[in-house]
Each structure stands twice: as C-alpha cells, then as structure tokens.
Design a protein around this nucleic acid. Sequence first.
DNA 1: CGGTCTCTTGACGGAGTTCAAAGCTAGTGG
DNA 2: CCACTAGCTTTGAACTCCGTCAAGAGACCG
Lengths: 191, 191
Amino acid sequence: MPATFRNHLEKFIEINDDEYAEISTYFTQASVRKKENLLEEGQICRSHFFVLSGCLRKFFINDKGVEQTTEFAIENWWITDNMAYERQQSTGFFIQAVEPSEVLVISHDAQEALLRNVPAMERYFRFVYQRAYAASQMRIKYLYDYSREDLYYHFHDHYPEFVQRIPQYLLASFLGFTPEYLSEIRSKRRS
Amino acid sequence: MPATFRNHLEKFIEINDDEYAEISTYFTQASVRKKENLLEEGQICRSHFFVLSGCLRKFFINDKGVEQTTEFAIENWWITDNMAYERQQSTGFFIQAVEPSEVLVISHDAQEALLRNVPAMERYFRFVYQRAYAASQMRIKYLYDYSREDLYYHFHDHYPEFVQRIPQYLLASFLGFTPEYLSEIRSKRRS
DNA sequence: CGGTCTCTTGACGGAGTTCAAAGCTAGTGG
DNA sequence: CCACTAGCTTTGAACTCCGTCAAGAGACCG
C-alpha cells in the first residue's frame, strides 16, 4: 500500500512497521476509470472505500429518474453507504468515479477482523466516524439554514478548488437543485 | 449511575464490575426541567450528554430570529454540538429539555481520559459514532429525496410515538418548515 | 467535422413562506 | 376548582423561490 495511507493513519494513531504490515493485509487496492461504478443500487454493500487519489461521488436515482448526489469523496476520505454496509444489506446508492481514481478497498468482514486484531484501528475509526458525524451535522444545519443560492455561495467560498474540479451539473445535484437554477444564480452575480 | 446506562453499554461491549466502577467516575448526573438549557449559543461546548430519560432537542436561531430544531435526543441517545465539542470552540446551538429529563454529563477532557484509560470505550464510541453517522447520512438522503409533505408522513409513520410526544411546532421546526404548513398538510388528510 | 454532453436563457407553474387574525388548550395562581 | 393568560394551532390571501419544460449555444471527443 502507498505511503500516503500510512501518513494519513499517523495523523490519528501511532503505528510501527509490524502493525502497518498487518494492517495492509486487510486491504486491496483498485483503480477506477471515470464514470465507473464501485457500487450499484440493489447490490449488497460489502466494501468501504478509501480514496488515495481522484474523486468519487455517491448518488441515488429519485422517483423522477434524476441522479441526486449526496456526497463527494476526495483524497483521504472514506466513502460507502454506511447504513447498508453496517447491516450488510442491499443499497439504494451508486458510488461512481468522477475522475480516474485510486482506492483502497476493505470488506466488511475484513474491517471487523481488523478492528478486533489491531486495537489502534478502533481508535482510528472512532476518530474518522466522529469527524464524519460532526461534518454531517453541520451539513444538515446548512441545509436548514441556507437558501439554495446561499448554499452555492457557501460551497463556492469554502471549497473553491472543488468547484473548479467538478462539472456544474454535479455541483447542482450535490447542492440539491437543478443545473438551470445554478446557471441563473451564476448569471446574477456576473451582471 | 443508573443500571440503564450499564445495560446500554453492554449492548456494544463487555465490561466487568471494576471497569464499570471506573467508567462511572468520569460522569456526573443532572436533572433538567422542561425548557431549561444545557447549552447556549456562544458558550464553549464542553459537555457531551447522554439521555437517561426524557427528551432534549438541539436548535439554532436563524437570521430571521426563528428557532430551527436540527436534532432530538431521547432515552439512550447522545447529544452535543459535535463540531464545537471536538474542537472545544464556541457553539451556534442551544440544547434544551423538551420534557423534564435525566442526563449523564461528561466533559471533553474526561471523555479523552476515559478513551485513553478504558480501551473498550474506544470500541463503544466507535459504534456510537458509526451508527450516528449512518443515520445522519440517511437523514440527508431524505432531505434531498422527499418533499416537506413526504417528510412529515415518513416521520409520522416511522416514529408515531414521537409525534404523540412532542408539540407540532417543534415537529415542524425539525422537519424544516413552518407550523402553518404542517397544519395545512394535516387538514388535507383529515378531509 | 459531426454528435453527444454540458451550460444558458426564458416562460410558466406549484410547493411552501409570510403575515395577520381568530380559535383552541393547557398551565398557573388565586 | 375555576378563570385568565400565554402559548399553540388553524385558516386564508398574497407572494417568492425554485422546478419544469423547451429550445438554443458552446464545448469536448472520436
């Protein structure tokens, strides 16, 4: 496994060479092409993905047949359908590469074993979920607090490099409105 | 500390009497009256609350001066402003008792020490945050997928005892719309 | 170059908000 | 135990944000 993952782990926990060697045995690595799916609606959600490079998104298809993006994952983020993963049930989501990406993959069984056998990883994942939960709570606050227009400007100012990186229609999908309305917002400020 | 907390812990981890005795030393217990605040906007968020009985809610006040409820916590749920708690920063939220409640309180410092000294609690909190994160993700999905009316019926069918328990205007606030609109929705079905 | 994918523009419609006022309910004190 | 008040819920009218639909203009890739 690439050194970037070890560096990432060491931001949270201390590990020695032996431990890292053991941790490595639980993961596999995969390359995904743009638009390739790592998870599809109806499948059992067996894997948890860690993004080494590139960008993934999670989306579902609503009753009008429109893709609704609920999450992006870039370098050093974990992504899966956590509810379906935890219960090993079928998912309502797709996980797709927005860019060509490199990911680490761990199966649910492997993750359980890893947590049992390497206690430091309990601590690591406690941090990961704690931060993810806190971020998710703030996201919910913004969804309540901001208008669609405000959401766009907030995201635009907070993650400018991200707005550069992904197409507008995915950004609109993530922010919960239509590409047409995003276009309207952008034209307002230009004038 | 009441046995209900030990029962709750033992759904996730195994602990013996000595461990439970140690765990107990990190917590204090508090009674809160209806409408009493456990946290107020502008304060440093120092505590994490576990609800033994009763019901708490978390809300913020938006730019129009309206209270927006983002979360309820009933028996066996944890609640705090996780982002502010983690960073020991000032919060933008209030946490208030909806009903007379009994809570366990742990400070940030105490929680850190507890996690260091009782490894089983790393595992416990990993579970807690993992589930909370998964639930939060599903909540976000619903916010994207459902109309306000659908949100009401979804909540109504999924947590009927909860709809009984809390006043309508808090439910409207939690679902992200006005009491007037909730009233309109309800009158539709009655006819 | 040709075709498909992405972004823009404008007209119209509908879900949900705002404001105001009146009815209802529940807690409180006398 | 009743009466009063404050807080909660309902109703209706006007308004706004944002979605839908349709059509055109760029832009990217083979």
